[in-house]
Design a binder for these strands. Sequence first.
DNA 1: GTCTATAAAACGATAGAC
DNA 2: GTCTATCGTTTTATAGAC
Lengths: 188, 188
Amino acid sequence: MDAKENLIVSTQELLWERGYVGMSPKAIQQKAGAGQGSMYHHFSGKAALALAAIERSAAEMQAQADSELSLQGSALAQISAYLQREREVLRGCRMGRLAQDPDIIANEALSLPIANTFTHLQQRLTEVLLQGQKNQEFQIDFNATDLATMIVSALQGGYVLARAENSDASFKRAINGLLHMLSTLIRT
Amino acid sequence: MDAKENLIVSTQELLWERGYVGMSPKAIQQKAGAGQGSMYHHFSGKAALALAAIERSAAEMQAQADSELSLQGSALAQISAYLQREREVLRGCRMGRLAQDPDIIANEALSLPIANTFTHLQQRLTEVLLQGQKNQEFQIDFNATDLATMIVSALQGGYVLARAENSDASFKRAINGLLHMLSTLIRT
DNA sequence: GTCTATAAAACGATAGAC
DNA sequence: GTCTATCGTTTTATAGAC
């Protein structure tokens, strides 16, 4: 298999597991089955490789969310599909975890794809909610932008609680609580 | 000032800024104005010092939340006081950020105070919501446990978005969205 | 493109003097 | 209790052969 591709995928995995600060070039090389010469031939260093991996993960996350939020059905159905997708909850969110990494946050290039991903998610959810309002699916008025951000936040926070408690129980409760709140907005 | 106390406080700060993996003993010593001899006299190593710091931060966070959730007033008033407390949003949550640290999660002793803190927050919020239900403050029924977890999650996720986007705008929108949802539950 | 050798610095700790 | 010296390992590369 392509060594460069292997390095990117391995870095995606390691960033998810250990973050940028906790990931060494040596670990990347071992996971990818590549030597130092190979890695430094394809990438100028740890930061450049991390950037490629983060951009890849960001694109994947956005594509996945876009597909769920484009399914046929009501706003609530689309949002439910997004929220109830099967997730490896205990691994946390690939993007959310990087937002806590000091060396990522200190580096504009590395943090840009992360910021863009969350901005994108909020925009798509806002559009879905606005469309629902236009279709008169809701009986209670609300600010679509605020609610969209709250939904993304609840999801991210659910991951945090799951990792902290080493259990997906809190994640599930958070999603249940959120979906129940959303269902009370619906015109019956 | 007490060198041991200084080391604990400095470690609290560094764990907040850089996490466990990103924090070196040397950095702790410099921040605390203590030498290596001093640090290794008072603590067996990095992990022991981190444990003392995490336990301290956990106790502080719980005490702060308890005080806000014990203010006189309705359930919504207490929760609003908790959610709208002034926060250094861009620094993230001291506990939440540690839940992403691989060496913390891999160490049961280090992660216990973090898990306990989130469990405690959820319990207190559940109690507040149950009391509100008992007082007939709500016109819509809901599961207090699920909603309590959702509130903690939205808060944690708000921190994540703020750090990712290097702005507190998303945090504020998440809180606004959450408070608006909660207000729709209220008996008018 | 990939390999091995080399290297300056940081990491996390230990030892022993004071 | 604190200081300085020392130590083995890991980190993050660079250099040059193949």
